[in-house]
Every structure is written in C-alpha cells, then in structure tokens.
C-alpha cells in the first residue's frame, strides 16, 4: 500500500512538473511571438532578396535557390553533404544491416519494376531543371533514395545498391567532387569555390550530379540501416561488438526488432 501511495505521489509530482513546463513554455511562446513581430517590423526587408536577384546573372544558374545553394553559399552545401555522410558512417559503425524483407509477390514486383525506373528518370529531370526552375540535387537525390527504399521493401536486402567497395566511392562522390572543384579553383587563383562565370554553369552541374548520386545512395543506405551485407563486411566473431557477440548465449540470426513480415 505504501508502494502505491509513493507511486501516486510521484505521478502527482510528474503532473505538477509537466504543468510547470507547459506554463513556462506558453510564456516563452508568447514572448517569442511578440519579439518576432517587433523583429519583422524593424525594417530589414527585403533582406538579401534584392541583392541575390541582382547578382543572379553571374552565378551560372537562373534558379535563385540553386544559386544560393551552389554558388553564394556553396560552402554550406558542401558541409551539409558531409553531415549526411557522417550520419551514415555513424549508422555503419553500429553494426551490420538487418536482413531484408520478404520477396515481393508478382503484383508488387511488377509495380516496382515500373516505379523505380520512373523515379530515376524523374530524378534526372529534377536535377536538370534545377538550373532554372524548382528542383536540384536534393530533390533528385531524395527521389533516388526513395527508389532504394522501394527496392528494399520489395525484398532486395541491399536496396539495389552495389557492393560495399563501390558504395563507399558513390557515398563520398559528392563531397569529393565538391572539395576537389573548390581546391582546383583555388589552385588556379580563383579562390575556393569561386567559379569563373564562364564555367559556373558546368561546374555547378558537375557538382550537382555528384551530389545527387551521393545523396541518393546515402539515403538508401541509411534505410538499409547498417553495414552492407557482402563478403567484405561479413561480421566475424572478432569484429562483432560485445553488445551482440559477447552477451548473446546462443547465436540468433534474426534480431527481434527487425521487421520480418
């Protein structure tokens, strides 16, 4: 009985605490909204918009968002590709991939064989129009990643990706090409990631193509959720972490958490 009493008291304390959090956050929200209003009316508009449009002719692209992403603030985009890669390498360091899903039936397989090529073609299209209309490397990469997800859901444990060796090259392609272009420009005296207007369009397209592949592969590989299966990454007793090898008395080939439909 004393147990339930202390439990109910703890629950009460929790309720009080979450009420306190809610009230203080409501105050925070109100204050932020008020200050946001003041900031909006501070007269900073049009902010960077006019300048960004004014400089657009020299960027090599006519879509202003692509101009920001791959020219004005290309360095941010480079680092963001590095963030995606870091997350994937972190996922790989946690262990090998779980086995895939059951092979799809005839209907799903038929649909997949239609949808996946369509996604890839659409991705290519988005990449190309990104120069002058909404689109670009991220949208295209996201479609490629989605194609990988569908392929894995349809039963391919590798999500349609190549073996580990090739996968590693594809993953680093984005940052590698980006950095090498930047350093190359620096070597020719233009400055890091400072494109000469004459070549800007083609350099941006080159970087975007590499980035699309890297993003697509990284997203699909993240969905696979571990080091790719294959002779290279076959876990040995020595490689396996203490977490799974040392603490499991009997080898269990299928971790309980994984989807096994």
């Amino acid at each position: 009985m004393s147990m339930s009493q202390s439990e109910s008291r703890a629950a009460e304390r929790n309720r009080d605490l979450s009420l306190l959090v809610a009230v203080s956050l409501a105050v925070l929200g109100a204050a932020l909204t008020w200050l946001y209003f003041i900031a909006l009316s501070a007269g900073a508009a049009p902010r960077l918009a006019d300048l960004a449009y004014e400089r657009l002719p020299g960027t090599g692209v006519s879509n202003p968002v692509t101009a920001v992403l791959l020219n004005y603030r290309a360095y941010d985009t480079l680092m963001e590709l590095a963030v995606l890669l870091a997350a994937l390498l972190g996922i790989w360091s946690l262990g090998p991939a779980a086995p895939g899903f059951q092979r799809s039936g005839a209907v799903l397989a038929g649909m997949v064989s239609w949808v996946v090529p369509l996604l890839i073609v659409t991705g290519g299209y988005l990449l190309w129009v990104g120069g002058y209309a909404p689109g670009g490397a991220f949208q295209a990469g996201a479609l490629l990643g989605a194609a990988g997800v569908i392929v894995r859901l349809a039963g391919d444990p590798r999500a349609g990706l190549p073996g580990e060796g090739a996968q590693r090259w594809l993953l680093v392609l984005g940052v590698l090409v980006f950095t090498l272009v930047g350093l190359g420009l620096m070597a020719f005296g233009a400055g890091f990631l400072t494109y000469p207007p004459k070549f800007a369009k083609w350099l941006i397209l080159l970087i975007e193509m590499a980035a699309t592949v890297a993003i697509g592969v990284a997203l699909a590989a993240a969905y696979v959720g571990g080091r790719p299966p294959g002779p290279e990454a076959q876990p040995t007793a020595e490689d396996e972490d203490a977490l799974t090898a040392a603490e499991t008395p009997t080898p269990d080939p299928t971790p309980a958490l994984r989807p096994q439909p």
């Binding site: 960077l48 300048l51 960004a52 400089r55 004005y72 290309a74 941010d76 400055g191 400072t194």
Partner: peptide, 13 residues
C-alpha cells in the same frame, strides 16, 4: 578574412 565565392559580404559565407 575571406569571402567564399567572392560575393558581397552579405551574400557570401
């Protein structure tokens, strides 16, 4: 001090 991309201080990183 370096403005990446050679753009104006506002636009560049």
């Amino acid at each position: 001090h370096l403005m990446l991309g050679g753009w104006d201080a506002e636009l560049a990183i």
